[in-house]
Design a binder for these strands. Structure first.
Length: 429
DNA sequence: CATCCACAGGAACTTGGGGGCA
DNA sequence: TGCCCCCAAGTTCCTGTGGATG
C-alpha cells in the first residue's frame, strides 16, 4: 500500500499523482467510525437508555446483544461508549472497557485486561504505588482481588463490553461470567455492568441459568441489513472516500446486493466496495465499474482462503496435503481414516512429530470451521461411522500455498506415480 | 433384529513454555 | 533456585452410534 513513500523517488509518483479514484481510502476501512450509523438509531437509543443510569451513579442493567457479523454491534456500542464517557466528564466517573474475547479468551486474561485498562486510564494521576498485574504468573483469584481493589479505588461505574462473548464461553466456560456478574456484591464504592456481544444465539445453552438470567437482563437484537440499507451505508461513505464521478452507477447497488446475500454483512459490503476501488485504481481506469466489483468478489474469496491456509500450523497443512494426495489419486471424498493413514505415513519423512488420530480429527474439524474443506459425518453401516470431507475450491491454489511452508519443502517433488505406488495399497474400497 | 464396523468426540491428563515471588 | 501459577497443544482412555449386513 504505497501511501507514505518518498515522492522524490519517482517510483511511486504515479500512484500519488494519478489519483482519480480515491479521495480517502481510510473511510472504507471497517476500523473507521463514521459520525452517523445509518439504520441503527433504535438500537443506539436502546443501549443508551439502558446505560443512562450510570450517569446518576446507579448500576445499569447488563445487556446481551445479538446479531450476525457486520451488523454494526461493535460500532454502536463503541459509539454509545464514547458518548457516555463524554457525558460523564462532569458527573460521576463512568467508564467503558472494550474486550475482544476472540483474543482475550481466558478468565485470567479477561480480568487482567480489565484491570490494566483501569490502570492506564489512571496514569495521569501519577500514583506509582499501584501494582501491575503481569500477563501471566499470578493465581486467578489474586487477579480477581486486585481488580476489585482497583475498582474500589477508582469508584464510579465501569461498563465491561465483552465482544464475541460466545468465543470466551466456548473456550473457557462460564466461570469468568459467573465471577463478573457476581462482582457487584463484593463492591461497595463502585459498580460494574456487563455488555455481552455475540453473533451466535446458541451460546446461551452453555451458560449456567443463573449467569444467563443475570447477564441478559436486557437483550437487543441487531437484524442484518437488507440491500437498500446497505446502499445507504455505502452511499454515506462514498462521498468521503471516492472522487466525484469515480463510481459507475451500478456499483453501490451491486456491492449491496452481493453483501446482502451474505446475511447482510456491512463489513463485507465495505470490503467489496474498497477492493473494487483498488482494482480500478490499479487498472488505471477512471471509473469503478460493476466488472470491478465482480472481480473484487472473487478476489476476496481466494485471498481470505489463501491467508487462512498460510497462517495454519504446519501440522494442519500436512493434513491438508494428505487430502491433496488422495485427491490426486482420483478421490473426491476422503474419510478421516484415509487421511490419517496417509498423514502418518508422510509425517516422519519430513521430521514432523506424528500426531494421533484423535488430534487429527480435531484439526480436521478446525479446517472445516475455517471453510477450507467441507465435512459431514456419515454412517456406512457395517463399514462403520466416519467423517467424510471434500474440497470445493481450487485445489491447485491450496497445494501451492501449503507447499510454501518451509517445513513441507521435502514434499514438493512428490509426483503422482510415486504416490500411487506408495499408497494405492492403502486405498482400497 | 441384533450385531458390529470405524470411527466421532468428551473428559481427564501430560508436557513444556510463559511467568511471579521469596 | 525452587516452588507456585497459567495456558496451548497434544495424548490416553473412553463411551456412543447409524445403518448395512448376516
Amino acid at each position: 500500500m504505497p501511501e507514505t513513500e518518498d515522492p522524490s523517488t519517482g517510483l511511486f509518483k504515479k500512484y500519488l499523482t494519478n489519483n482519480r479514484i480515491f479521495k480517502n481510502r481510510e473511510v472504507l476501512r471497517h476500523s473507521y467510525r463514521p459520525q452517523i450509523l445509518p439504520h441503527r438509531k433504535p438500537q443506539i437509543e436502546e443501549v443508551a437508555s439502558i446505560l443512562a443510569p450510570s450517569l446518576r451513579n446507579e448500576t445499569p442493567s447488563n445487556i446481551l446483544i445479538y446479531g450476525k457479523t457486520g451488523t454494526g454491534k461493535t460500532a454502536c456500542v463503541r459509539y454509545v461508549g464514547t458518548e457516555l464517557e463524554k457525558a460523564s466528564s462532569k458527573g460521576p466517573v463512568c467508564r467503558l472497557v472494550h474486550l475482544n474475547c476472540e483474543v482475550i479468551d481466558t478468565q485470567y486474561r479477561v480480568l487482567a485486561q480489565i484491570a490494566k485498562s483501569l490502570d492506564v486510564s489512571e496514569e495521569l494521576g501519577s500514583d506509582k504505588t499501584r501494582t501491575h498485574i503481569p500477563m501471566t504468573g499470578w493465581p486467578t483469584d489474586q487477579v480477581y482481588a486486585e481488580l476489585k481493589n482497583q475498582l474500589e479505588a477508582t469508584g464510579g461505574v465501569l461498563v465491561i463490553v465483552l465482544d464475541e462473548i460466545d468465543k470466551l464461553v466456548k473456550k473457557s466456560g462460564d466461570d469468568t461470567l459467573y465471577n463478573l456478574t457476581r462482582i457487584n456484591s463484593d463492591l461497595k464504592n463502585s459498580k460494574v455492568s456487563i455488555i455481552g456481544i455475540s453473533n451466535d444465539l446458541s451460546f446461551k445453552d452453555f451458560l449456567d441459568p443463573r449467569v444467563l438470567s443475570s447477564l441478559s437482563e436486557e437483550e437487543i437484537v441487531f437484524p442484518p441489513y437488507n440491500a437498500p440499507q446497505l446502499v445507504d451505508i455505502l452511499a454515506q461513505r462514498a462521498d468521503g472516500a471516492f472522487i466525484a464521478g469515480a463510481l459507475a452507477d451500478g456499483v453501490i447497488p451491486l456491492c449491496s446486493a452481493l453483501a446482502a446475500q451474505e446475511h447482510g454483512d456491512a463489513r463485507r459490503a465495505l470490503d467489496l466496495f474498497r477492493i473494487s476501488g483498488e482494482l480500478a485504481d490499479r487498472d488505471e481506469s477512471s471509473q469503478v465499474t460493476e466488472a470491478h466489483v465482480k472481480q473484487a468478489q472473487a478476489k476476496i474469496e481466494t485471498d481470505s482462503m489463501i491467508e487462512c491456509i498460510a497462517t495454519l500450523p504446519t501440522q494442519s497443512k500436512l493434513i491438508l496435503f494428505s487430502m491433496l494426495i488422495l485427491e490426486k489419486l482420483g478421490q473426491n471424498i476422503f474419510t478421516s481414516g484415509e487421511v490419517s493413514r496417509i498423514y502418518q505415513d508422510i509425517a516422519p519423512t519430513i521430521q514432523l512429530d506424528v500426531l494421533t488420530h484423535r488430534r487429527i480429527t480435531d484439526l480436521i474439524s478446525e479446517l472445516n470451521m475455517l471453510g477450507v474443506i467441507n465435512t459431514r459425518v456419515v454412517s456406512r453401516g457395517r463399514y462403520g461411522r466416519t467423517k467424510e470431507m471434500w474440497f470445493d475450491s481450487n485445489t491447485d491454489k491450496i497445494r501451492e500455498v501449503v507447499l510454501k511452508d518451509s517445513r513441507l519443502n521435502g514434499l514438493k517433488d512428490l509426483d503422482a506415480s510415486q504416490m500411487e505406488a506408495k499408497w494405492l495399497k492403502t486405498w482400497f474400497r
